[in-house]
Simulated assay, not measured.
Amino acid sequence: MDISGLVAIVTGGASGLGAATARKLAEQGAKVGILDFDAERGAQVAAEIGGHAVKTDVSSEESVAAAIAEIKEKLGAPRVAVNCAGVGLAARIVGREGKLSTDVFDKTIKVNLYGTYNVMSYAAREMMELDPLDTGERGVIINTASVAFQDGQVGQAAYSASKGAIAAMSLPAARELAKPGIRVMAIAPGLFNTPMMEGLPEETVAGIVANVPFPHRLGMPEEYGLLVSQIVANPYLNGETIRLDAAVRLPQR
């Protein structure tokens, strides 16, 4: 699919992987709608790339429905939807003094998994109403898992569960949406230089990088955006989760 001139929506597009993806798609000629809870930063990125931003709580079906309706009104119906919005909360299942983390699990599932499903659902419905392109495609949906879906560390039970579910959705969603010509893929990024990582002490980051085989560094958000663009361009990629991780395997802790 040639992205030039098409409409793309990116959740979490105000920062990190989402912002890099929004910039990459805009660079290739897409009209980009940014859905992010941070309205101010979302508007800044949208202004930079000539797109449109909507404050969105992806865990709320009503908020997602309203946001996609606004993007459709301002830019047109989306051919591409990229889900980058998410939270990375960490907590042991049973912590000190028997404290449980069911609240962390609930929030993580609602934002990461329900949020992805909400956006995928509303975006797919819009794509199904579009005419097919020369390739037969009506659209492509790219969701963000994490290497933690296979290599979850201590304290990542909730996060790994949410990302594992996103990876598991790829094939059945791709099969269901095959008839109207909508592809569904997932990317499982490894250790990336996102705002969360930038806030860590230098020695902590060095310890994290020590586990990365090659390239021996953190991933750059632009490399995530590049893979998104490559998935959009390659019509035979469908129903799969791609690890983008420089061959890293997360240790137990």
Rank of each mutant, 00 (worst) to 15 (best):
M127W: 08
M197V: 15
N118W: 04
M169Q: 04
R138C: 07
P189I: 12
I208F: 13
A161C: 10
I93A: 14
A123D: 01
N211F: 11
E97Q: 12
A90E: 14
Q156I: 00
P180L: 05
K110Q: 10
L113E: 03
T144A: 07
T204N: 08
T144M: 08
I109G: 13
G98D: 01
R96C: 01
T144H: 08
N211M: 12
Q153H: 03
V205M: 12
G136S: 05
G190W: 10
V147K: 01
Q150D: 05
V111W: 06
G190K: 08
D134K: 11
K110C: 01
P201Y: 10
V154H: 13
G155A: 01
R175S: 05
K163H: 07
G136R: 01
P221T: 09
V154R: 15
A167H: 05
L177V: 04
A161D: 02
A188C: 09
S162T: 05
M128T: 03
A173T: 08
P189Q: 08
G136Y: 05
A188M: 09
H216G: 10
T144K: 01
V184M: 03
P132V: 02
A167F: 03
D131S: 13
N193Q: 13
G190D: 14
A145R: 00
V212A: 13
A161M: 12
G219H: 03
A178K: 12
S121Q: 08
V104I: 15
L177I: 04
P180T: 00
M169Y: 09
G95L: 09
Q156A: 10
T194Q: 07
K99G: 04
V140E: 09
N118D: 03
M220K: 12
M128I: 06
E203H: 11
Y117F: 15
A168F: 05
G155V: 00
A178M: 11
M127C: 10
K110V: 00
A173W: 06
A123I: 01
R217E: 13
V184H: 11
R138Q: 04
V154W: 11
G207A: 12
N143A: 12
E97M: 11
E129V: 03
V205T: 13
M169C: 10
G115Q: 03
V205S: 13
I109W: 09
Q156F: 05
P172R: 00
D103A: 15
A148S: 15
F149Q: 10
D106E: 15
A157L: 05
V147E: 06
D106T: 14
G219F: 10
M185K: 02
V205Q: 15
A90R: 15
Q156K: 03
K163N: 06
Q153P: 00
E198L: 13
D103T: 11
V140G: 06
N193T: 00
D103M: 06
F192H: 04
V154D: 14
G152E: 04
A168P: 02
S170A: 15
I141A: 01
E198P: 00
D103S: 14
L100I: 07
A178W: 12
G115S: 03
E222A: 15
L89I: 03
L218A: 05
Q153A: 04
F214M: 09
